[in-house]
């Protein structure tokens, strides 16, 4: 088996002011190669002005079987959303 070919996740910023968005992944043996490969794969049609690559193995994710405990407790905190509060129309936009 050959080794050394790593997977990198690619994030692109399309325009100044926009957030970086995950575009997909790319292969590359080193950092520079990963950047160049990402540029050639994901921005051939002028899709980007900034590009990040990060080795996929460095990404930390929530374990699948903990997802319930991780995210569900946020579901019932409705007081965190503006629509929870009743404000009279007459006071204007708030």
């Amino acid at each position: 088996m050959e080794s050394g070919d790593k997977v990198w996740e690619v994030f692109i910023q399309k325009k100044a002011g926009l957030p970086f968005k995950h575009a997909g992944s790319v292969h590359g043996y080193d950092k520079k190669m990963a950047l160049q490969n990402a540029r050639d794969l994901y921005t051939r049609r002028g899709e980007g002005r900034e590009l990040w690559v990060v080795e996929a193995s460095n990404i930390v994710a929530v374990p699948l079987d903990e997802a319930d405990a991780f995210f569900d407790p946020a579901d019932d905190k409705i007081y965190r959303h503006p629509t929870f509060y009743n404000i009279p129309d007459s006071v204007g936009h708030m």
Partner: peptide
């Protein structure tokens, strides 16, 4: 040597 390199050289 790789598909990525095909794309780079084509560019």
């Amino acid at each position: 040597p790789t598909l990525e390199e095909d794309i780079a050289l084509s560019n």
